[in-house]
């Protein structure tokens, strides 16, 4: 496992473990995340990707281990885009305003951020529409617009392009790339291998709650070190029984 400390690290996970009643969803994860650029988290369904993101967002408290933010300095603002976006029962622009309200911006700055987020996420024409009437993809873009408007230090994206058309996906990828190039750390959960290849500098591969591979994206996609990662990338089912089913 490589240590990404040569890039300025943002935070460090030390023995991070999360246990829900009986099941251990995340098991002893240690890693350092860079302060800029995209880190892709990949792994099979149920591997614990969302759980890790929720821990990073502070929505869950680790059962053991810790997340050390001290490297990030005092200013730490996370924004999370959920796998299933939560859309408030308000208009599109009111959704964005609500998301930035806790930041205490002045009116001019708030209005500017709303306009910018709407433009970037191509939602201008839906500004005053009831947000819950938007299509699935539009709702996902709104969720991203809300997160961007907060200008976070850490952007946590849980499969943000899962129901987007190719144009929107390309637009979102451009936004993510832009944010990552600036001073934002992006943590991206995705099942789209090609997307991870396009965007990620680093890859974390989770398997059954364990971080079994953490390496530069180029190296990971060129030659994964573990059999699990190779199977995942090849789209193969993992062996069910010791008897194996031929790989």
């Amino acid at each position: 496992m490589l240590d990404p400390a040569d890039e300025a690290p943002l935070l460090e996970l030390r023995g991070l473990t999360y246990t829900a009643t009986t099941a251990t969803l995340l098991d002893d994860v240690s890693a350092a995340l860079p302060a800029t650029g995209v880190t892709a988290i990949i792994g099979a369904n149920g591997a614990g990707k969302t759980t890790l993101l929720r821990l990073l967002a502070g929505l869950l408290t680790p059962t053991a281990g810790e997340i050390d933010w001290s490297l990030a300095g005092s200013a730490r603002r996370t924004a999370m885009v959920f796998q299933r976006p939560v859309i408030l029962r308000r208009s599109v622009d009111a959704n964005i305003r609500h998301a930035i309200a806790p930041l205490g911006l002045n009116e001019a700055e708030a209005a500017r951020r709303v306009d910018e987020a709407l433009a970037v996420c191509r939602l201008d024409h839906l500004r005053t529409a009831p947000a819950r009437r938007l299509s699935g993809g539009e709702q996902q873009r709104l969720a991203l617009a809300r997160a961007l408007a907060r200008k976070p230090d850490v952007l946590l994206l849980d499969e943000p392009c899962a129901s987007l058309d190719p144009q929107s996906t390309a637009a979102i990828e451009a936004i993510v790339r832009q944010a990552a190039a600036a001073s934002t750390a992006v943590v991206l959960v995705t099942h789209d291998i090609a997307q991870a290849q396009r965007l990620a500098a680093w890859v974390m591969f989770l398997d059954a709650g364990r971080l079994i591979e953490h390496s530069r994206a180029g190296a990971f996609f060129a030659g994964p070190q573990t059999a699990e990662a190779r199977d995942y990338l090849a789209g193969r089912l993992p062996p069910i029984a010791p008897g194996d089913e031929g790989s």
Binding site: L59, L88, R150
Partner: peptide, 24 residues
């Protein structure tokens, strides 16, 4: 049940969450 994670992710305290929930 639907909103809690999102509202917490915005860093809203109990008062802010309460207001959002009452309005929505």
């Amino acid at each position: 049940a639907e909103y809690d994670d999102y509202l917490r992710s915005l860093g809203l305290g109990i008062g802010g969450r309460l207001r959002t929930l009452l309005w929505d």
